[in-house]
Design a binder for these strands. Structure first.
Length: 968
RNA sequence: GCGGGGGUGCCCGAGCCAGGUCAAAGGGGUCGGGCUUAGGACCCGAUGGCGUAGGCCUGCGUGGGUUCAAAUCCCACCCCCCGCACCA
C-alpha cells in the first residue's frame, strides 16, 4: 500500500488488464458472501500483475434503490427487530443506530465499513477511483447513458402494474412488505356477461381460463358478500365492494353507483357473450369476494370448484325450483380433451381427491392445480365447441361469428386457445382485464393490504428489441464465460428478456432528465458504470464541475465523437484535459473481466451485455465474465432470518484476512456453493503456520548446504511440477485446486523431501522450492506471503515479483521416487498378506537393456494402441530368439503401464536409460525406514544375478518397472 | 411448465468436459496405536468383501448401450436444488 502498487496509471509499455467486480449495496456490512466474489477478483488481479500486466481493479458503491430508504425509516421508528439485527448480527454499535435513521447516513455508514473491510482483506484496489452512484458526476454519466438509449429508440413508454400500498400511496417491493414477501402480480381476464333485464349491467366474470367460456352453465356470486354497481369507463359493472376499491387503482374512471342486495339477483339470467346462451346467477359460497371481481363463471366440466358447487346445489332441489333452474341446465359441457381423463375431467379429479363440498378448500385447490396443469399442457380444444357458439343465429350471419372460433380456437391446444379466446372477446368488446396480487394477502409494513396499481407513463428499456438481442448474442458468443456452463443461461436470458420498467417513483439515484419524479432504477443505472472508473479520478483531479459534464463531454470521452474545441467552448474544459481523459478511457477499455455472484446472471450481467453493445463500438465490448456461487456457513445458507450472517470484519478479527481468503477459496470451485466452517478456518491457519516453520529452515541463505542427492534433485523437480500445475489452475480459475495444492500438497512435498533425506533440514534445493512456493502463495494469502518473502531475506515486494516459470523437470529423479514408492507399497502389501514380520527382502529387477521396452509400451498406450498393435510393433523389430525371450513379458508390461498416470507416462518417454537397481540403491535408507527392515537385509539383484536365488516362476515374471520381490 | 445445475463410499466433497495409477483425492466421523497424570491438540495405522505374495470380487441415482476398458461417452427413466423480473 505504501508503495502505491495498486494505483494503476496508463502505461503503454505494459499490456493492460481491467478487472471489476459488482459493487456492493451498502445497506448492511460486507459478509463472507461478498468476500468470495471480491477475493476471486483480487486473486486474479494479483496473479495478472505478477504475470506482467498493468492491472486496474477499482471499486464503487451502489446507493441507488429503495431498500436503504425503507431500512432507514424502520430504524427511525426504532423497529426492535431491525435494531437487534443491526446491533447483534451486524456489529453496529448501539450508539450509532440513532444517526442511521437517515438513508444517506445509513449508506455512508456501511459504505465506510465495507471499504474498511476491503482494505483489511488486502484487496488490491485503486482507491483513487472510488465513487458512489449518487455522486453528481456519476449522475451526469447516467443521464448521458439514458439520453443515448432514448436516441437509439431503446426506451419506450407505457403503463405498468406494480404492488401498491393504498395508505402510503407508494409502490411496494419485497423489502417493503411484512415478511419480505414479493407481491406476485397476475392478470385476470374479465368476461362481461350482460344482465338480461334491467338497464345495461354487466357481470365481469374474472377468470384465468377464458377458453372455458364456451362451457359456462351459470354465474356464481357469493351470497354473503356486499356487491355494488360501479361505472367503469361509462359501463356499469356488478362487482364486490372490495373489487370496486381495487379497480380504482387500475382504472381512471371508476365510480360507485349503488349498493346491491345480492339475494335479489339469484335466479336472474345473464347472456354468455361467447355463446349467446342465457345462464342463471346462483349462490356460490366458495366465491372469494376479495379475489378479483368476486364474479365467477361456472364451468363444471373443467373447474373442480364449479363442479363441486354445482353438485352441492343439485342436492337442494327446492333451491333450484326457487330460482327456476332446470337441473339439466347445469350439466357439465365438455370442451377439452385430455388423455387420461373422461369427458368431464373436473368430475374425475373431484372424485379422485375425495372432495366433500365446495368448501373443501384444501382438496379443491389441489385438484384444481392438477387439472389446470394437465389441461394446459396436454389439453386440446374439442372441435364440437363450434356448435355451442350462437346456435340460434341464422346461418348466413352465424358463419361470420363462428369463423374465428373455428380457425383459432377449436382443435387448438389450451395454451393457444386461451390467448385466442381472450383476444376474440376483447375485440367484440366483451372482455377486459384486471390485475390481482396472486399470492394475496400481502401486507405493507404499515399493515395495509397491498393492491395492484397501474402506473401511467412508466419508462421501459426495451430489451425485447430484436436487433438489440442479436447484437447481445453476438457479444455473448465472443465473450469468455467462466464457468462455461453458464453460457446457456445467458443465452436463455437474452432470449426472454423484454421491456423492463427502468424507473421508480422513489429511492436514491438519478432522475430521468425528461420525466420529473422518475428515478432510474438500480439495475438500470449499473450496467456500464465500469467506464466511469476509467475517468472519474481525472475528472476530480482536474476539478471539473458536474455541470461541465454534459452529453457532448461523454460523447467525446467515451465515443470519440465531436470536436474538443467546441466542447472547450461550450463547457470551458481545456482541450488537453479532454484529450487526457479520453486517452485514459481508451487505454483501459474494454473491460477484461467482470466478476459477480451467480444471482446476477439473469439480470445485472445480462443487462451489462445489452447496454455495452447498445452504446459502445465492437472493439470496446467486454471480454470476459467470471461468476461464482454463494457462501454457506457451517452448511447453512446465510440469511437475515437465521441471523447467521458473519460480517466480514468480524471474520477478519477472528481468523485474520489471509485465513478468510484461503478458506473461502479452498472450500469450493467457482460455481459450487462454498461452505465456510470454523473448522476449515482452523485447518487453514494450521497449514499457514506450518509453512512459516518450513520457511524458517531455509531463511538463512548462507548456511544452506547443497543437496545433490536424488532427494535434492527431486524437490527441485517437484517445484517445477507444482509451478506448472498451479499455473494451470490459476489460468482456469480453479482457485480451490490451486489453494489446496499450495496449502496442503506442497507442504506434503516438503515432508516427503525430509523423508527421502531422512532428516528435517534445509538445503539450497529446498530453498528453491520454497521461494517459488511463496511467490505462488502471494495472490492467495498476500499478507503472509509478503512477510515470508522478507523472512527469506528479500528486499523486494513479493507482489511485484514475476510469477514463476517451470524450468526443466528432472524426469529421472521424479521417476526414481515414484518407482521406489511403488516398490515400497508392493512390499508392504506382501507383508500385510503374509502377516509375518519380515527380516529380509530380495528385489530382482529387469536388465537395464530392456528399458526401451517400457518406453515403447508407454508410448503405445499414449497413442491409444491396442495390445495387439503394440505387440506386433515390438516383435517386428526383433530377431526370433529375442522374440521368444520378450513375448511373454509384453502382456504384463503393457497392462501395468496402461494404468500409469498420464503425467508419469510422458515423463517416462523422455528417459532413455533407467537403471532400476541404481534407483533402489540410491534410496535404500528411505526404503529401509519405510518398511522397517534393516538396510543390509535389503538385497537388490539384476535378473541375471537372481537365478537360483528366487523362484523361477517369479524370475520369469520380471518386466521393466515391475521387479520381483521376495520377502522372508 | 420453461431454463439451468446436480445425484459419488457412514457424512461432506473432488474426479466426469479430454474413458485406463479409480476401491475412487481431500476433509470429517468411527475404531486401534503413539504422545500425555488425564483430556485436548498433534502423530501413525485401519475404515466394501475375500485372500499366507504385490491379487480377485462387488461398486459411483436406476435401467439399457458403445468400448479391449465406463464414475467418466450415448439413450431412457427417477429424484433433489436454483432462476422465471421491474427487486438489490
Amino acid at each position: 500500500m505504501k508503495e502505491r502498487v495498486y494505483e494503476a496509471n496508463p502505461d503503454p509499455s505494459k499490456p493492460k488488464f481491467f478487472i471489476t467486480a459488482a459493487f456492493p449495496y451498502p445497506n448492511s456490512p460486507l459478509h463472507l458472501g461478498h468476500a468470495r466474489t471480491y477475493t476471486i477478483a483480487d486473486v486474479y488481479a494479483r496473479y495478472m500483475r505478477m504475470k506482467g500486466y498493468n492491472v486496474l481493479f477499482p471499486m464503487g458503491f451502489h446507493y441507488t434503490g429503495t431498500p436503504i430508504l425503507t431500512m432507514a425509516e424502520q430504524l427511525k421508528a426504532k423497529d426492535p427487530e431491525l435494531v437487534s439485527l443491526f446491533v447483534e448480527v451486524y456489529d453496529v454499535p448501539p450508539e450509532d443506530i440513532e444517526k442511521l435513521g437517515d438513508p444517506l447516513a445509513l449508506a455512508r455508514y456501511f459504505h465506510k465499513d465495507a471499504k474498511q473491510a476491503m482494505i483489511e482483506m488486502g484487496y488490491s484496489i485503486d482507491w483513487r477511483r472510488e465513487f458512489t452512484t449518487v455522486d453528481e458526476e456519476f449522475k451526469k454519466f447516467i443521464v448521458w447513458q439514458f439520453t443515448k438509449l432514448k436516441e437509439k429508440g431503446l426506451l419506450t413508454r407505457g403503463t405498468h402494474p406494480v404492488g401498491w400500498c393504498p395508505k402510503h400511496n407508494m409502490p411496494v417491493g419485497m423489502h417493503d412488505t411484512k415478511g419480505d414477501v414479493e407481491p406476485e402480480i397476475g392478470e385476470f381476464t374479465l368476461i362481461l356477461f350482460k344482465l338480461e333485464d334491467g338497464d345495461e349491467i354487466y357481470l365481469p366474470a374474472a377468470t384465468l381460463r377464458p377458453e372455458t367460456v364456451f362451457g359456462v352453465t351459470n354465474i356464481w356470486l357469493n351470497p354473503h358478500a356486499q356487491y355494488v354497481i360501479v361505472e367503469v369507463d361509462g359501463r356499469k359493472w356488478l362487482v364486490t365492494e372490495k373489487a370496486a376499491f381495487k379497480l380504482r387503482f387500475q382504472r381512471k374512471n371508476v365510480r360507485v353507483v349503488e349498493k346491491v342486495d345480492v339475494s335479489k339477483l339469484f335466479g336472474k339470467r345473464v347472456v354468455n357473450p361467447a355463446t349467446n346462451k342465457r345462464v342463471p346467477i346462483l349462490p356460490g359460497t366458495f366465491v372469494d369476494p376479495d379475489t378479483a371481481t368476486g364474479v365467477v363463471m361456472s364451468v363444471p366440466a373443467h373447474a373442480p370448484y364449479d363442479y363441486a358447487a354445482v353438485r352441492d346445489i343439485l342436492s337442494q332441489p327446492e333451491m333450484l325450483k326457487k330460482y327456476g333452474v332446470d337441473p339439466r341446465e347445469l350439466e357439465p359441457i365438455p370442451l377439452i380433451k385430455v388423455k387420461g381423463y373422461s369427458d368431464v375431467p373436473a368430475r374425475d379429479v373431484v372424485e379422485k381427491f375425495g372432495v366433500e363440498s365446495q368448501l373443501d378448500k384444501e382438496k379443491l385447490d389441489e385438484a384444481t392445480k392438477k387439472l389446470y396443469s394437465d389441461e394446459y399442457h396436454h389439453g386440446i380444444m374439442r372441435e364440437d365447441i363450434v356448435s355451442l357458439v350462437y346456435p340460434d343465429l341464422p346461418p348466413e350471419y352465424r358463419r361470420y361469428v363462428v369463423a374465428p372460433v373455428k380457425v383459432w380456437i377449436a382443435g387448438k391446444s389450451v395454451a393457444e386457445a386461451r390467448e385466442a379466446t381472450a383476444k376474440w372477446l376483447e375485440a367484440l368488446g366483451y372482455a377486459d382485464k384486471m390485475y390481482e396480487v396472486m399470492n394475496r394477502p400481502v401486507y405493507c409494513r404499515c399493515g395495509t393490504e397491498v393492491v395492484v396499481k397501474v402506473l401511467e407513463d412508466q419508462w421501459f428499456i426495451d430489451y425485447g428489441n430484436p436487433a438489440w438481442k442479436a447484437k447481445a448474442k453476438e457479444l455473448l458468443s465472443k465473450m469468455n464465460i467462466v464457468p462455461e456452463e453458464l453460457r446457456k443461461e445467458f443465452m436463455y436470458t437474452i432470449d426472454w428478456l423484454h421491456e423492463r420498467a427502468a424507473a421508480r417513483t422513489r429511492g436514491l439515484g438519478t432522475e430521468l432528465p425528461w420525466a420529473r419524479g422518475w428515478i432510474i432504477e438500480s439495475l438500470s443505472d449499473s450496467t456500464i458504470y465500469m467506464i466511469f472508473y476509467t475517468v472519474n479520478y481525472k475528472i476530480r483531479r482536474y476539478g471539473l464541475k458536474p455541470e461541465q459534464l454534459g452529453i457532448e463531454f461523454w460523447d467525446y470521452v467515451v465515443l470519440g465523437k465531436g470536436n474538443p474545441k467546441d466542447i472547450e467552448k461550450k463547457y470551458g474544459i481545456p482541450r488537453k484535459v479532454l484529450e487526457d481523459i479520453r486517452s485514459e478511457f481508451e487505454y483501459w477499455y474494454p473491460l477484461d473481466s467482470r466478476h459477480s455472484g451467480r444471482d446476477l446472471v439473469p439480470n445485472h450481467l445480462t443487462f451489462f451485455i445489452f447496454n455495452h453493445v447498445a452504446l459502445l463500438p465492437r472493439e470496446k465490448w467486454p471480454r470476459q465474465i467470471v461468476v461464482n456461487g454463494f457462501v454457506m456457513l457451517e452448511g447453512k445458507k446465510m440469511s437475515k432470518s437465521l441471523r447467521n450472517i458473519i460480517p466480514l470484519r468480524r471474520a477478519i478479527r477472528v481468523y485474520g484476512p489471509d485465513t478468510v481468503r484461503a478458506a473461502i477459496l479452498a472450500s469450493a470451485e467457482l460455481l459450487q456453493d462454498a461452505n465456510f466452517t470454523h473448522e476449515l478456518a482452523l485447518s487453514v491457519m494450521d497449514r499457514l503456520s506450518n509453512i512459516v516453520k518450513i520457511v524458517e529452515l531455509v531463511a538463512d541463505k548462507e548456511q544452506l548446504e547443497d543437496d545433490s542427492s536424488i532427494a535434492g534433485r527431486w524437490i527441485v523437480s517437484m517445484a517445477c511440477t507444482r509451478i506448472r500445475e498451479v499455473t494451470n489452475y490459476m489460468e482456469e480459475f480453479k482457485y480451490r485446486a490451486a489453494t489446496i495444492t499450495l496449502l496442503y500438497e506442497m507442504a506434503k512435498d516438503v515432508e516427503k523431501y525430509f523423508e527421502l533425506r531422512g532428516a528435517v533440514k534445509g538445503s539450497k534445493q529446498l530453498r528453491f522450492f520454497v521461494e517459488n512456493w511463496v511467490k505462488m502463495l502471494a495472490p492467495i494469502v498476500p499478507h503472509i506471503a509478503e512477510e515470508l518473502w522478507h523472512r527469506l531475506g528479500n528486499k523486494t515486494l513479493v507482489v511485484t515479483e514475476e510469477w514463476p516459470k517451470p524450468v526443466q523437470r528432472d524426469a529421472v529423479a521424479e521417476l526414481t521416487v515414484a518407482y521406489v514408492d511403488k516398490l515400497i507399497e508392493d512390499i508392504k502389501e506382501i507383508i500385510k498378506v503374509v502377516k509375518k514380520k519380515p527380516e529380509k527382502v530380495i528385489v530382482a529387477v529387469d536388465e537395464p537393456t530392456n528399458w526401451q521396452l517400457a518406453v515403447k509400451a508407454v508410448q503405445a498406450t499414449l497413442n491409444r494402441l491396442s495390445f495387439k498393435e503394440f505387440m506386433n510393433e515390438v516383435l517386428r523389430e526383433l530377431s526370433r530368439d529375442e522374440r521368444r525371450r520378450v513375448a511373454p513379458k509384453l502382456k504384463k508390461l503393457f497392462d501395468y503401464v496402461m494404468g500409469l498416470h498420464e503425467d508419469l507416462k510422458k515423463l517416462i518417454t523422455t528417459i532413455n536409460e533407467f537403471d532400476e537397481k541404481q534407483a533402489i540403491e540410491q534410496l535404500k535408507d528411505y526404503i529401509a525406514r519405510s518398511i522397517g527392515v534393516d538396510k543390509n537385509n535389503i538385497i537388490v539383484l539384476r535378473a541375471s544375478e537372481a537365478k537360483g536365488v528366487i523362484p523361477s516362476q517369479k524370475l520369469a515374471s520380471i518386466v521393466p518397472l515391475r521387479p520381483a520381490i521376495v520377502v522372508s
